[in-house]
Simulated scan of single mutants.
Amino acid sequence: MAQRFGGKYSPQPMDAGTSDSPGYSGVAPGRTVTASEPVHPLARRPVWLIVAAIPFLPSAFGGGPGALIRDLGAFALVAGAAFLLREGLKAEAAWQARSAARRPVLPRKILGSIVFGLGLGLGAGQAGILGAIAIGAVAAILALTAFGLDPLHDKGMEGFDGIQHDRAARAIAEGEKRLSEMREAIRRTGDIALSDRVERFARGAQALFRAVEQDPGDLALARRYMGVYLDGARDATNRFVELWIAHRDTAARTAYEALLTDLETDFASRTRTLIEGGRQDLTLEIEVLRERLSREGLRADPVAETPPPPES
């Protein structure tokens, strides 16, 4: 029977929360775990705009100061447009991933499309003023068609206190930042199993974020988890990474994974509490509404609506 090859320096499967295998299990330098951040399907397209603008660079030299300013300026505008479009796609992906979100303050995709049109119009200056304007306008329209518009309205904000929602959004952004710092720190170990373990913890924390996002009023009940607990997890991750890189201390690894398990359990418990609390509130509101409808005579008694049994 075929057997899996294994050794001190070979990646080996490891269950979550266990670290009894000897050696450097799961170590595979150069491999990273993809973070669970929203990614727009068109996120790589803006790079091709920069590639397409490369011909502006050689033509900038040898044609005098006018050509130098025109072509370098055109390339800079196209590169800036690509950056704006990429940031706009990232903002749109984050907006789509959330059930409640405000529209982006700056419409980056629209602005990027305009800058792209200006860049191509400047680069086509030899075609005359009217020709450059026409080329720039067509380029801006094509960019808008290719990348679409920015989200221009808030989503899921009906009935929410704007100030309360902003506080929840800031707390969630800070929590996501702490999770990103944990991911970056644990990648320094080059250990896939550890990166997977941190990623599972991050998904549990993000479930709590989504619960707070659904009802910003729950922020007071989750603030300690999104602040103090995540700060502690980040600091513990940094200390563990330094210790692991220096000494490969398996006891420290076991303690660190146990800490993540405990925190993950606490986060899951708090998330269930928030969700079940929301369901209890909804059930209570439904019962109160039914009682009021009954008092107002707008809801018939279910018993009275039951048809009598047929006579024998």
Rank of each mutant, 00 (worst) to 15 (best):
P307T: 03
S294F: 04
A93M: 02
I163S: 09
T250A: 15
R290F: 12
V33Q: 04
Q12S: 12
F116Q: 10
A82T: 08
R170D: 12
L130T: 15
A255E: 13
P151M: 14
A220R: 14
R270S: 03
I186F: 07
G63C: 12
G159I: 10
W48F: 15
L293A: 10
K155P: 02
T18K: 15
K155Y: 06
I50P: 01
T273S: 15
E285Y: 08
V212S: 00
G17I: 08
I129S: 03
F147R: 09
A53M: 07
F160Q: 11
Q214Y: 10
A205S: 10
V241D: 00
L289I: 10
A124P: 08
D266H: 15
L230F: 08
A300S: 12
A207K: 15
A60W: 03
A140C: 05
S59R: 11
E287T: 09
F160T: 02
L219S: 06
I245T: 14
S19R: 11
G156T: 03
G6N: 13
A132C: 04
Y24D: 01
R234K: 14
T271L: 01
Q206D: 08
A304W: 14
T145C: 13
V39P: 07
R224T: 11
P29T: 09
V212H: 00
G278L: 12
R299W: 14
R188K: 15
D20N: 14
A76E: 03
T306L: 15
E199W: 10
S36A: 15
L120C: 13
T271C: 02
T18S: 13
R187I: 05
Q12G: 08
S99C: 05
A193R: 09
R102N: 07
S10Q: 09
W244C: 01
P309I: 10
R45K: 10
R98P: 01
T32N: 12
A171I: 06
A140M: 07
E213M: 04
E276K: 11
A137L: 11
S180P: 05
D154E: 03
I135F: 08
E296C: 02
F61D: 02
M14W: 04
A79Y: 06
A67R: 04
E181D: 13
F5Y: 08
W95A: 05
L230M: 12
E276S: 15
G123P: 00
Q164W: 06
K155S: 00
W95P: 02
N238V: 13
P46R: 01
H247E: 12
L194Q: 00
A258L: 05
A74E: 05
P55N: 04
L111A: 14
R70C: 00
K155I: 04
G66V: 07
G136R: 00
A168C: 07
I245D: 13
V138M: 05
T254L: 06
I172Q: 00
G62I: 07
R248V: 12
I114D: 01
Q12D: 09
G159C: 13
G136Q: 03
A43K: 06
P55C: 02
A137D: 00
Q280G: 09
P22S: 06
R44M: 11
A168E: 02
E285L: 11
R108G: 06
Q3H: 12
R239D: 15
V228N: 12
D301P: 00
V115G: 01
A211P: 01
L85N: 01
A173G: 12
R224H: 10
I245M: 15
G17W: 04
A35W: 06
Y24F: 10
